[in-house]
Design a protein around this nucleic acid. Structure first.
Lengths: 264, 264
DNA sequence: AAATTGAGTTCCAAATAATAGAACAATTGT
DNA sequence: ACAATTGTTCTATTATTTGGAACTCAATTT
């Protein structure tokens, strides 16, 4: 009779932790250090409560307070993340294939995986520069405006796509950014041809082509992409990479079957 | 009359969050995916409790369960971390100076910062030579067996060093790893000369030289280091870099004063 | 100089979520 | 077929979190 056991959109109730994660999310996704009052403003909880919650997060190193008393994400997060990343099997298996694709195309190659309604970038191979670990790696981007995201959606059963799309809060990043309706339409196209484009849908001047990667039971869904600046990459030249990128995706899936299949 | 408000060594009580963080710590620092029972074994809590705690962590994406039901660190951690890293001012300011030091020495350069009794590596510039090393951006390493760690301790007031050392659980990684007593002795030396060595104290075959970096009020304490394999780097050649590495540290501190001092 | 506003912190009875422990499934080994 | 091990669910009890007010401190305004 009291509050719902599950919040509006199917997310499970995680009690105290859930409330704390909202705060961590707010602070870590802000443009810069945040004042207590500004954090308070985006919650609907009383001051005393938020104050104690933030104190706990700070005590645990998940948040920090700078000398001006502003809150910012804590460095302890880095330690957790580096271990999550360092041992990620999908990434380890895909690595050589990504490198090869980078060599072939000369453009930036990304590996991403679907989590909720976001794509989390697991790895990135740039032209000359050595890999700057978190330069883009780790970032969560919306599914609906990334090549990898749309490629990933295209291999999910239609019902699951619809359910996911219903959860998304669409935001118009550029003139080409999808809406719920246009996205569902394009997914159908992608399903047929086997690869997806990003036609400057997330950032003006940035295009990409992507192919999906998935495990048998869909416990892992993601993709590879080749990204580059629009001035250098016409849609025609992007299209020429459709075959190699699909082959790369295929090789990664094959490597996963032998690498993960038989008891590791 | 009940349990203490503060745990043994001065750490604040963070209630429910603290208990959850212990679990997250255990799983993310394990060698591989963990079974429920193994996680349970390292806690002193009842089965039902741990089970629910893990469920909450999984629901929030901080942990994940693979197809065998094993727990591993969740990818959501990557998103948090990439934002923490991407905007870290200390790292951004130090970057060009680290690069210059790497160019000059040709060996791997690290930037680290003190958090509790650990050094968290914020950045790393590698040389050409592919030397496998137990160090990655974000990783937390013990203060007492890293060059950066000892350099950092050397600029803290003696009482604070003693307090910190008292908290450390010393683990003998190599034959040269410090004990509490020997560490305190070396800190005195480092305080005098202004730079620290790591004489294969963490990993056999790996040496380094480091210089401390600190802010006026000690709100930030860390260091830079040049690291390399023992077979190529004798203690004599390492010593030759004492001056340049201290200059690099000096330049970074100068840049911090102008960069952070006046309202950013 | 006194009063006012705004930001941050502390406190405690009441509300709520976490806990302990047992009971229940499901899986594996003998 | 039986025992042992592992993982999951349930509920009264207990402990933590909550909400709201009161308080401090500094910066502005009157």
């Amino acid at each position: 009779m009291t509050a719902a056991k599950e919040s509006a959109h199917g997310k499970r109730d995680t009690g105290t932790l859930g409330k704390l994660m909202v705060l961590l999310d707010v602070v870590s996704h802000a443009d810069g250090p945040m004042r207590f009052t500004d954090i308070l403003a985006v919650t609907d909880q009383p001051r005393g409560t938020v104050h104690r919650q933030l104190s706990h997060l700070v005590d645990e190193g998940l948040l920090e307070i700078d000398e001006d008393g502003l809150y910012l994400p804590g460095l302890r997060l880095l330690d957790f993340a580096s271990r999550s990343w360092g041992r990620n099997e999908f990434r380890l298996i895909a690595e050589p294939h990504l490198k090869a694709l980078q060599d072939m195309t000369g453009e930036t190659v990304h590996l991403g995986v679907l989590r909720g309604t976001s794509i989390i970038y697991l790895d990135k191979f740039e032209g000359q520069q050595p890999v700057r670990m978190y330069s883009q790696i780790g970032n969560a981007s919306p599914v609906y405006c990334t090549g990898v995201g749309k490629a990933a959606l295209s291999i999910l059963p239609q019902e699951r796509v619809r359910a996911l799309v219903a959860e998304i809060a669409f935001h118009r990043f550029t003139a080409n950014t999808h809406t719920a309706k246009s996205l569902l339409g394009e997914i159908e196209e992608i399903r047929k041809v086997g690869h997806a484009f990003d036609r400057e849908e997330h950032e003006v001047g940035i295009r990409c082509i992507a192919a999906p990667i998935w495990s048998e039971n869909l416990s892992l869904v993601g993709g590879v992409s080749v990204t580059g600046p629009a001035y250098r990459l016409g849609m025609e030249s992007l299209s020429e990479w459709a075959a190699p990128i699909r082959e790369t995706a295929g090789r990664i899936m094959e490597a996963m079957r032998v690498g993960l299949g038989p008891r590791r």
